[in-house]
Design a protein around this nucleic acid. Structure first.
Lengths: 248, 248
DNA sequence: GCTCATACCGTGGTATTACCACTTTGACAA
DNA sequence: TTGTCAAAGTGGTAATACCACGGTATGAGC
């Protein structure tokens, strides 16, 4: 029997989804900690009553989103997720959209404002040292859009780290790739303007000082100012570009 | 030959990665637009010189990260990515870290503060209408932790939408699942406290009023206050719980 | 007795084949 | 002209066999 059967209606969804949901539950419920080895593919297949290819598809999918890591000859292990990978996903997804590159600035402001508040309360001496190091790097590289952009990004990343908030750090990591691109583009546009070096160096120095002094309100105000002036420079650079292009 | 050969060094990586990279390139380079149908699995298999299971694994992986959609009986189509799906990923990843459930509040504050500022500048009449509707829903459901929590979340989600920032919306969507859980848990803890209804209803009403008045500073202040009072209630509820448990 | 090399075993990696299920489309009949 | 159904195309699953890599245990050699 079973062949021409009218089909059991109370049956579960498709095999793949079923298995995926099963493993997903195991992960979410915490029954599996990072580093744990999953059951072998063959074992999973017989246990869940599906074929090995299906199991493999599920595992590949989980590996694609970074939840597990498949190691040849060893097994599949639960991964301590690294959010930096989400950056790749975001980039891959946003690659098709486009206009978002400007908009990412809004998210950056949101994250950094909160981060700097937390940093004022939670930053350790190690964090402050890291910020100081990043600051010196910024000072050294003001003239180079490429390296300078990286240094700029690194400083702000250190700020996020000092906040000691995993979620904030995750979100930041997720858009890190885009942010880096944003940093670079913004740098390239304004690198020729007057007073830009002072803006870049002095503001970062003040930001660090505010965090070190644990003055959250002041730090927040400085950061807002930092972004506002940055936007102003962008506007000015755009105007400059328009004028020169219309002249040509 | 070939058997005992020293192995061709110029050879490519493993089949899966090779195929994955191939398709990935096609997607990123824009050769494939959203809505396009990929080649059938069998066709891809013969063209790339691998077996169909491998192709399926790649497609499943791509589907898992939301890049394509596999439709039974039709084919695999390139998707216009939807960031809401990242929420599941975030949830899976963050679920293993445990203490994050509290920390997600920091991200929420970060996103909403920025969102409400933008909303004050960008909200349309449609947005305001949606906020009004959400507000009424909040008023109606203050007494129920479950439904009320959902309504609460919906109101704040409407706030994000009114900001018209794709990136902010994406980040919010990414942590939406966690936020909903957070909303529910917080509700359950404080639902018995005095004055809680006034807090829930009145604050949301004021927030909406501030956005409608396009008063960003006031809205921001109200929001901060909203969160601060929420935290205070949480603290009080915790103290209450401690007292009762020590008594028992 | 200790160390190193080798063989074995467990596990993922891939291929092959066959068949089922869903979706679409076009042909046929009313 | 329209509705129904059948066929073709495509994803979904299963079963099986064999290869490739990692780790461990076992043996030989020192």
């Amino acid at each position: 029997m079973g062949a021409g059967l009218t089909r059991e209606p109370a049956e579960e969804a498709t095999g793949y989804d079923q298995v995926f949901a099963f493993v997903r539950e195991q992960l979410l419920s915490g029954q599996m900690k990072a580093g744990d080895r999953l059951l072998p593919e063959r074992e999973l297949a017989t246990r869940l009553g599906v074929s090995r290819p299906v199991i493999r598809e599920v595992l590949r999918a989980l590996a694609a989103i970074g939840v597990i890591e498949i190691r040849h000859g060893y097994g599949s292990v639960v991964r301590r997720p690294d959010f930096a990978e989400l950056g790749d996903l975001f980039t891959m997804m946003l690659a098709q959209q486009g206009e978002v590159v400007e908009d990412v600035m809004e998210a950056r402001i949101a994250i950094e404002r909160q981060a700097i508040r937390l940093a004022c309360a939670r930053a350790t001496s190690t964090d402050l040292a890291a910020l100081g190091k990043a600051l010196r790097r910024v000072e050294e590289t003001v003239t180079d859009p490429q390296i300078g952009g990286d240094a700029d990004f690194a400083f702000h990343a250190a700020l996020i780290a000092a906040a000691h908030s995993p979620t904030l750090a995750s979100l930041h990591a997720a858009i890190a790739v885009l942010l880096k691109r944003s940093h670079l583009e913004r740098r390239e546009r304004i690198t020729s303007l007057d007073g830009i070096e002072t803006y870049l160096v002095e503001h970062h120095r003040e930001l660090l000082a505010a965090v070190a002094a644990r003055d959250a309100d002041s730090a927040d105000r400085l950061l807002m100012q930092h972004f506002a002036i940055g936007t102003e420079y962008q506007r000015r650079a755009a105007a400059e570009r328009d004028r020169s292009s219309s002249t040509s």
